[in-house]
Computed example of a mutant assay.
Amino acid sequence: MTEWALRIASVAVAIALLCNGWRLFRGPTPGDRIIAIDTMVINVIALIVLIGMLGGNTTYFEAALLLAMVGFVSTIAYCKFILRGDIVE
């Protein structure tokens, strides 16, 4: 029963990724695109964790943690670039 719930959750996260991709390419402002990328990172983290739970492999959880750290830093860098036009001052 748990395996079915994980598979349904994986499909739901994949659909959310498709919706985020649509917002990324269709977004009218750079802010919309940055939020879409950040949300895509969160959904990819969720998908990696779900795959790790389905496979029973703990390596996926470490990969999700690394992606979370990189995703946070990249979102801050994108926002800083949009606001100031330069990342490093």
Rank of each mutant, 00 (worst) to 15 (best):
F61M: 11
T39L: 12
T59L: 08
E89M: 09
I82Y: 09
A46I: 15
L67D: 02
A68E: 03
M53W: 11
A12I: 12
I45K: 04
N43W: 04
T75N: 10
V41Y: 05
F72V: 12
A46K: 02
R84S: 08
I51K: 05
G85Y: 04
I45F: 05
M69L: 15
I51P: 01
F72G: 06
L65G: 13
A64N: 09
G21T: 08
I48S: 10
L50K: 01
M40V: 05
V13P: 00
G56F: 01
V44W: 07
V70G: 05
G56R: 03
G52V: 00
P30S: 10
G85M: 02
L83W: 07
G55M: 01
I42N: 08
D38T: 07
A46V: 15
F81H: 01
G71P: 09
A12D: 08
M40T: 13
L67G: 03
V11I: 14
G85T: 01
A14L: 14
L6C: 05
I48F: 04
L83R: 05
F72C: 03
G85P: 04
L66D: 06
T39E: 12
I42L: 15
N57S: 07
Y60L: 05
N57D: 15
G31Y: 06
D86Y: 01
F81N: 00
V41I: 11
V41D: 02
L66R: 06
I35K: 08
Y60A: 10
G71C: 03
F25E: 04
I15A: 14
I34N: 00
L18I: 15
S10N: 09
A36F: 01
I8A: 14
I42D: 11
A9S: 14
F25R: 02
I82M: 06
M53Y: 04
A77E: 00
M69Q: 06
M1I: 00
L18T: 10
C19F: 14
I8D: 00
I37M: 12
G21Y: 03
